[in-house]
Design a protein around this nucleic acid. Structure first.
Lengths: 344, 344
DNA sequence: TGTTAGCACTCAGTTATTGCGAGTGCTAAT
DNA sequence: ATTAGCACTCGCAATAACTGAGTGCTAACA
């Protein structure tokens, strides 16, 4: 069902108004705001039609109308367009990225902060997943007694590490030897292909060393698969200023959501439509805690390979065009910055 | 001004009651609850006295009384005692610690979770500060181009790391060499005493290597000083169930507080009184965001040296005795667990 | 036939009024 | 010193009346 131009225009104005004010929009207010030169009565007729079509609802008889989820979807798909950000804002963002330190983690923090500042919603940023990348280098660092730190470095120069306890004590010398053995393997083999049989073929190891290597390998593989560790979020309290969040239960929902890093991570990286900017409105979200929110996400890449995701969580009456524009620009900046940081 | 036994008893019952119900306590209710066999009228007289002395206030004429901050302080200092936890709870906690993995970080997470579960308030745990400890071992790991990961290991086997960019490219071999040089220094010198002059005395380095070492040392020192990184908190939403937190502004305050890891860290480690369990009530807290809360903290040690802190944040009508008892027991468990993990 | 003015109607939210009840302070009797 | 009794206070819940922004419908109009 296609809407005629006037209906489309009216719907647009209602949505814009409601996004700004969070108040139901009435026909009189509307006729003043949009300069179509039509009277409240006419608008009422049109609004009644739009209600029949499922784009508007009345919270109660005798109040103005508010947009439905379907209306937001229509707005996002058919009406709004992703604008270019103002020059001043663009250069601000650009300079900000130049000033971040060379550490990847702080770039992520910075991104989250900028996002939440520019949008006034809650920002979430996923640090690069090492999962998809190959491991170039492993360092075993002796800690104390049988405990070691394993550092895994990918081809792109990203590092992750975990502490583990092994079955025997490991001193500096042994740690170095173990590192060398494993790095020897990695010259020819992917970490994920590293099997017990391969290890057993190497002769010049004592039984103890061989045993340790066998213990270490599964841990290394686990490091690469570990997902939830690096979720940065900011601006939680931004949302509290919006009237729909005066309810403590909604706040609880939001906090629970942000704390479930695993879920957040899956949700944001699962890009079925292959779109650059993905918008999920209200109940379009699978996650129960997100049913009352909208989330807009995007991804950043290195060498065409998806590395991570970032996005913004807000009320369903979110400022979709502004947020999309911001995400779009940040995405470019981030891609640029990351490839500077990691390119061979 | 000392209180006589009866006043003391009455004050105790009022505080206990108010902690449970968050409702002002009246004389009639009170006379039923405490079996001193005195009538409401007498109690009213005593309550009037207690009000004059500053221990009670009436939210409005003609309502019951609620304890003041002074009353809580009196209760904490003079009335309550730290009980031993029930056997069952004790063994539960103990088993929980045995089951945590060997990684320090997960022990901290576990501690926070247990604390918030047992108290129903918000728990905060500071991971060990490396600041006070000496560095035994440094590993420079080549990442990509001029970027390296620096891993610092203390004598006790705790590890910290940062990524930095150096002025020249560093490959695996160079990284190893740099590590060896620095570790050579550390055999005889504390990291904090490592100066440029010392470095210059070593002959067998190329000018480039020497330059890199000079760049690296300040970074290493900074790693040890970095404080805010490891603050674990849980149970934020626990507090939302208490009636005093139906106000969104208070929630905001709390969230801001928990996010300011630096502040939290300073506040919790600054132990002027040298007490095992430290209780700060309402405005006794220096931090503006904490003025409406109470916080109870304790510390854990290794070899008599303070390593970190943990504690609980809640309303001023906090269940002081229960929380103190829990902290007291967890402290012992944590000390035990950590020394098992790190003892040479 | 589409648009608009006019009018009766709806209903959330605010204000004013009232009554209730838990609590107090004071006084006089025990 | 303690307590029973009583008048008084005051927050709070319930009720009623009022307001105003908004609607749907009808009839008139271009």
């Amino acid at each position: 069902m296609e809407l005629n131009e006037r209906k489309k225009k009216i719907l647009e104005v209602i949505i814009r108004d409601y996004i700004n004010t969070a108040e139901p929009v009435g026909s009189r207010t509307l006729s003043k705001r949009c300069n179509l030169g039509i009277s409240p009565a006419t608008i009422r007729n049109e609004m009644a039609d739009l209600e029949d079509l499922g784009y508007l609802v009345q919270p109660h008889t005798s109040s103005g109308r508010i947009p439905t989820q379907k209306a937001y979807r229509y707005y996002v798909d058919e009406i709004m367009e992703i604008r270019k950000l103002e020059k001043m804002i663009r250069t601000d963002i650009h300079r900000g990225f130049l000033n971040t330190t060379t550490e990847l983690g702080s770039t992520m923090d910075h991104t989250a902060r900028v996002l939440s500042q520019l949008t006034n919603y809650t920002a979430v940023v996923l640090a690069p997943r090492v999962t998809n990348f190959n491991c170039r280098n492993v360092q075993i660092v002796s800690l104390i007694k049988n405990r070691v730190l394993m550092v895994v470095v990918t081809n792109e120069g990203m590092a992750k590490n975990i502490e583990v306890a092994l079955s025997q004590d490991v001193d500096n010398a042994l740690a170095l030897k173990l590192s060398n053995v494993i790095n020897g393997f990695l010259k020819n083999t992917n970490l994920s292909d590293l099997s017990s049989e391969l290890v057993d073929r190497i002769q010049e190891m004592t039984p103890e060393e061989s045993k340790l290597i066998h213990e270490i390998i599964p841990h290394l593989k686990k490091v690469l698969l570990d997902e939830d560790s690096e979720v940065h979020s900011t601006g939680l309290t931004n949302l509290f200023n919006y009237p729909e969040f005066s309810d403590v239960n909604k706040i609880k929902q939001l906090i629970n959501l942000v704390q479930e890093k695993q879920v957040l991570s899956e949700m944001m990286t699962n890009n079925n439509g292959n779109q650059v900017i993905r918008i999920k409105i209200g109940s379009e979200n699978d996650n129960e805690n997100l049913k009352d929110f909208s989330i807009i996400t995007s991804t950043y890449e290195l060498d065409g390979e998806m590395m991570g995701a970032f996005g913004v969580i807000g009320p369903t009456r979110m400022n979709y065009d502004n947020v999309s524009s911001v995400l779009n620009y940040i995405r470019n900046e981030l891609n640029l910055h990351i490839s500077n940081l990691l390119m061979k």
